[in-house]
């Protein structure tokens, strides 16, 4: 399991636009670098990121090798009702990881 840093507010007012910041530990090997004996290091990157709020898509992205190592993404979500935010990363070599956070919506 890769280490993940998530910054998600625990509570929000209804209709508020909340800021979400996610970072996952991953080398994002581009497939263009050359190793110590001249061999090309095979590509190993995260291809997809998706964030859903109780299953409803909020933000998703297709990542390419030009995304820096330990991919960081900051984006927003509109708080409608108390629910669970799910964050999913998937990529080369069968990489798949999901994290969840509960957000309580008041008002």
């Amino acid at each position: 399991m890769a280490r993940v840093l998530l910054q998600v507010p625990a509570t929000a007012r209804k209709g508020e636009v909340i800021e979400i910041r996610v970072l996952i530990q991953h080398p994002m090997e581009t497939g263009f670098r050359v190793g110590t004996v001249g061999e090309v290091l095979p590509r190993d990157i995260i291809r997809r990121f998706a964030c859903t709020w109780d299953g409803e898509p909020v933000f998703s992205a297709t990542l390419h090798p030009a995304i820096a190592a330990n991919p960081y993404l900051a984006f927003t979500a509109r708080a409608e009702a108390t629910g669970t935010l799910a964050f999913t990363w998937s990529g080369d070599n069968g990489f798949a990881q999901t994290e969840t956070r509960r957000v309580t919506v008041t008002g």
């Binding site: 898509p57 933000f59 992205a61 390419h64 090798p65 030009a66 995304i67 991919p71 960081y72 984006f75």
Partner: peptide, 20 residues
């Protein structure tokens, strides 16, 4: 570099990341 998909649930059309 990146293709991001958003919708009304995002609330605002903005994102940040780090690129090479």
């Amino acid at each position: 570099v990146i293709v991001a998909e958003l919708g009304p649930r995002a609330g605002a059309a903005r994102f940040a990341t780090r690129i090479r």
